[in-house]
Structures are given as structure tokens and as C-alpha cells.
């Protein structure tokens, strides 16, 4: 791997002196790579993703994303970094009083993109994810799998460099989980780096992807 898209060098994250969540994390993830982050609950998977998205700052060490040292990134620049990254959560984090279309469009609106361009792109993404007929519907009327697909649509609508997913299949049954998994594989195949945090061993076994195993804040493989 010549120049990784994401690189973590001796990263530590602790909240108090005796509460260390991440410990000496060293990691290199290349462009277009699909990586699972696996480990039991409380292993530090979510914190690792938050550090990459700059939702949390590392206590020690360096985090590099697409050539940017996050340690030196000012607070005012963080939103611009996040626009180049998409994130999908276990609880979807959809806005209840916005329609499917408006939820997906939000990612583009915050970038100040023209309304006509937003309409065109959101329609295109919703169509590719089979959500076109649901665009005027509010999230509470969708199934769990559909809601997660809307969350994925919102994460990919800006063509991000990297897609971070935190237990995106955690609230879904096995069939829906497999659908979402294949959706992420497609996204990865188009050149987007995918970092997929899950404790679901079965899901990992079903694919032949790189796996990073975390336990008590340390990489153990």
C-alpha cells in the first residue's frame, strides 16, 4: 500500500486516566478497500470510527485521512472533512419530520449545492437503492431495512471517499442484513473505501474481506 487513505499511528483515546478506550492503534487503509472492524461490545469499534470522523479527538497519536492530519485540523474545518466521508449508524439517525427525499438531500444542502442539482442527484441515488417510490414518505412508515437504505443513500449521495458504518445491520434480521451487506460491497466496488464495524461474525465469514479485530481497545490480529 503506497499512500493509504486512512492511517492511524499510535493512537490512544482515553476519557479519564484509568478509562482507556483505544490503545496504541496502528492502521493503514487503502483507497477503495473494504475493511471489517470486529470485536465484542465495548471493544472500541464506535470510538475508532468517531476518531476517524473527528467526532472525537485522539488523546495521543496521529490520525491521517486523505493526507490531512486530524490533530492539526481546526474545529471550523471539521464539517468540510465530514462532507468527504459518509457515516451510517445502527439506529439510522434519520430525521423523523423530513421525508426520505429531504433526509437524503440534507447531506447536499449543508454543502450549499443548488436545488436542481440536489433533486437530480438524490433521485438518482434513491433509484439505485430501490427507494424511488418511497421518496415522499416519512421514515416512521418504512421498514428497518428500508430505513437503513435511506441512511446509506444519505451517506453516499455526496460520493464520499470513505464510508464508515457502525453496526449498520445491528437492528436488522439476517435477510435484511445480507441485503445491506451486498449494498456496501457494491459501493466498495465502485471505488469507495468502506469501514464496516460489526460484532456479527457470520456476516464477516460470508465475505472474504480484511478484518481488524479489536479487544479492549487494542488491535489483536
Amino acid at each position: 500500500m503506497d499512500s493509504p487513505l486512512i492511517e492511524l499511528k499510535h493512537v490512544y483515546k482515553s476519557y479519564e486516566q484509568d478509562l482507556t478506550i483505544l490503545e496504541d492503534i496502528n492502521l493503514r487503509i487503502g483507497k477503495g478497500e473494504f475493511v471489517f472492524v470486529n470485536g465484542p461490545s465495548g471493544a472500541g469499534k464506535t470510538t475508532l470510527l468517531k476518531v476517524m470522523l473527528c467526532l472525537e479527538r485522539s488523546t495521543k497519536g496521529e490520525v491521517w485521512v486523505d493526507g490531512i492530519n486530524l490533530k492539526r485540523l481546526s474545529n471550523s474545518k471539521i464539517p468540510y472533512l465530514r462532507r468527504r466521508m459518509g457515516m451510517v449508524f445502527q439506529d439510522f439517525k434519520l430525521i423523523e419530520n423530513l421525508t426520505v427525499f429531504e433526509n437524503v438531500a440534507l447531506s447536499m444542502e449543508v454543502c450549499g449545492i443548488k436545488k436542481s442539482a440536489i433533486e437530480q442527484r438524490v433521485d438518482q441515488v434513491l433509484k439505485s437503492l430501490g427507494l424511488e417510490i418511497k421518496k415522499r414518505i416519512y421514515p416512521r412508515r418504512l421498514s428497518g431495512g428500508e430505513q437503513q437504505r435511506v441512511a446509506v443513500a444519505r451517506a453516499v449521495v455526496n460520493d464520499p471517499l470513505v464510508l464508515l458504518a457502525d453496526e449498520p445491520t445491528g437492528n436488522l434480521d439476517a435477510g435484511r442484513a445480507a441485503d445491506i451487506m451486498s449494498l456496501f460491497s457494491e459501493i466498495s466496488a465502485r471505488g469507495t473505501t468502506v469501514i464496516f464495524a460489526t460484532h456479527n461474525q457470520e456476516l464477516i465469514r460470508s465475505t472474504a474481506k480484511r478484518v481488524i479485530i479489536l479487544d479492549q481497545g487494542r488491535i489483536v490480529n
Partner: peptide
């Protein structure tokens, strides 16, 4: 929840 989501998708202050 909405404001948190906005921060996550890169909305400026």
C-alpha cells in the same frame, strides 16, 4: 436528533 445528524453530515455552525 436532527441537529446531531446535521453535524454528522458536515453542516457548519
Amino acid at each position: 436528533n436532527e441537529l446531531e445528524t446535521m453535524r454528522l453530515v458536515g453542516a457548519t455552525n
